[in-house]
Design a protein around this nucleic acid. Structure first.
Lengths: 338, 338
DNA sequence: TTGAAAGCGTTACCAG
DNA sequence: CTGGTAACGCTTTCAA
């Protein structure tokens, strides 16, 4: 099955004995074309099954109608939902998305940015890896004038639109809820200290404690890199405490689920002995037993918002709209674990 | 932040007072270039931060190094894992993937194929919607000579590489397992009759029954469109039977999970009263209680295989390798539900 | 070893 | 209303 010669406007022109300029005009609805000529062109185009070559068009317009989306891992439901939201938002305006996974590696993230830049995407929507601390690449994109949107794990150092989760409020609300349930020794399974989202959630937690006159106990906080080893170590440490926690609050659902399973394996009653709460309302939180109380996030909406921001930039390209930071609001979903 | 003028080889040529031909040669490692000239060009390229324009290159070579991936829904863990596998397989060879979701709509699937064809992707990896019965679009791609790989929900009517799940064997093994557990009234929650995967799984089920001398009972089979309504109706119907099933086997995990929850809500003991089994080993199956016995599939591997097939076609473009159908083998994962 | 020019498929401008 | 030609950025002959 050999690839056919692609039909071009020149083929149409030749068949019709007219110039390619006229064919082009007819095809692009340019008014300066004799109706009969246009009709003939359109018919011939159909007959020959003509397909315009977007590559040539892109070359002229310096516009590919492709957006680069860089995420750590498409297999995480959170990111998959965001991607879906982005696609549905920008798809309506005829933009396609090239998805690149960084696999949580700053190095791969860098390579992806390079490659997509060479592919001449019209803009980037980026969620950094949990370990990205050097933002030179995205800054380089910014300097080159690429439309940029940062989401979830954002780059704070650039005045670009950002869409984030309801970080502070989420942990504040969840902690408050646990306190209302009578818990006083509330542990926190946190994330890397350098991540903005992680910082804000941590602050939500400490703020709730402070406002309720509960002393902050450094021993009850564990900073993780979102790895299973970290969770296990934290739980072990907490349970060995002379005064173990009566609640464990986490800043991410996968961690909460793991905590839940570790506690159950040790025969600890949930929520009687220890209450557990997550963050995100990941599909899995409704399936475990007891159901996990968690602060709902809407990743699909985050994607939608990020996509809309991108369309805004793309539309009024060179105007400087004040870059806003959009928070996708969430709400507490109370289940059996608290 | 205005987009800079893109640096081209002409800029380099002008700065150096040489022709763009020479610059091109130097940049492409063409041997016919004076080493000194090359060095100067390379340095200048670096100084000016020259980025080759892939668009121009693509136009010349009629090759974009982009692959179109069409899936029903990226938010399903199964498809997300496949996408990940595809990307990791083809990424090594410098191919990028444009992901398009059909949202299970044959119409959108068609539009996506059209759009990606216009974008001049180098090939397509396609998983059809559950409702796709008309394969004109993919046949059109085939006729135009596009490299094609079909996976999971395949098009059987074309001699192209296909990668599928372990359909027959999966349901055969699972049914066999239930029989060994002493079950005799085994219900089947099946899929649409026109889907090849659905057919094969159904056959695996009936074959196992027959080989064990268990009479096939039409009443114990429910064909679904993978919708929650369908599952609820099926369970209701089965429970109302004068002789209800003692096991429910499903051809997809989401269905099994729903069955599990419906039965539990009705106070039915699992697996004592009714055993339940799924297909896929979706991450969620390990989280519900009791854990769901399910036939493990490796969607990531399916993606990897599909990607490799595509690379094969792309390499030896116009040779006709016999199109094979690859089965990604699975194995039974026994948990509490049986 | 280098330069000039053609060509990839289109659009857009300028004459006619 | 139509045709010719330049231009988009690059590679690839063909001459020199």
């Amino acid at each position: 099955m050999k690839r056919h010669h692609q039909v071009t406007i020149i083929d149409i022109a030749r068949k019709l004995g007219i110039s390619k300029s006229t064919v082009s005009r007819a095809l692009t609805n340019n008014p300066n074309v004799n109706p009969d000529t246009r009709k003939a062109v359109l018919e011939m185009a159909k007959t020959l099954d003509y397909q315009p070559n977007m590559l040539a068009l892109s070359l002229i317009k310096s516009e590919t109608r492709m957006l680069g989306v860089i995420i750590p891992d498409i297999q995480k439901p959170f990111f998959a939902a965001i991607v879906s939201g982005i696609q549905h938002a920008v798809g309506r305006m005829g933009y396609r998305t090239i998805i690149a996974q960084s696999d949580e590696s700053p190095q791969i993230e860098k390579e992806n940015i390079q490659a997509l830049m060479l592919s001449r995407v019209d803009g980037f929507l980026i969620c950094h890896t949990r370990d990205t601390r050097n933002f030179d690449q995205i800054k380089m994109l910014y300097q080159k004038g690429f439309p940029l949107v940062s989401f979830a794990r954002i780059c704070q150092e650039l005045p670009i639109p950002k869409v984030v989760e309801d970080d502070f409020n989420g942990l504040y609300t969840t902690t408050q809820h646990l306190i209302e349930r009578g818990r006083r020794r509330i542990a926190l399974l946190a994330g890397p200290k350098h991540l903005q989202a992680s910082k804000l959630r941590y602050q939500g937690y400490t703020t709730a404690l402070r406002q309720n006159g509960i002393a902050f106990d450094q021993e009850l906080v564990a900073h993780t890199r979102f790895l299973t080893e970290n969770v296990e170590a934290a739980v072990d440490r907490w349970l060995a405490l002379s005064e173990p926690p009566d609640a464990i609050c986490t800043i991410y659902d996968a961690g909460a689920i793991q905590v839940l399973q570790l506690l159950k394996k040790r025969g600890i009653q949930i929520p009687k002995d220890i209450a557990v709460a997550g963050f995100g309302n990941d599909p899995a939180t409704g399936l475990v037993e007891p159901g996990l109380t968690t602060f709902e996030q809407r990743p699909y909406e985050i994607g939608l918002l990020a996509g809309k921001h991108m369309l805004d930039i793309l539309k009024k390209r060179f105007t400087d709209t004040p870059p806003e930071i959009t928070i996708s609001e969430g709400k507490l979903v109370v289940r059996g674990s608290t």
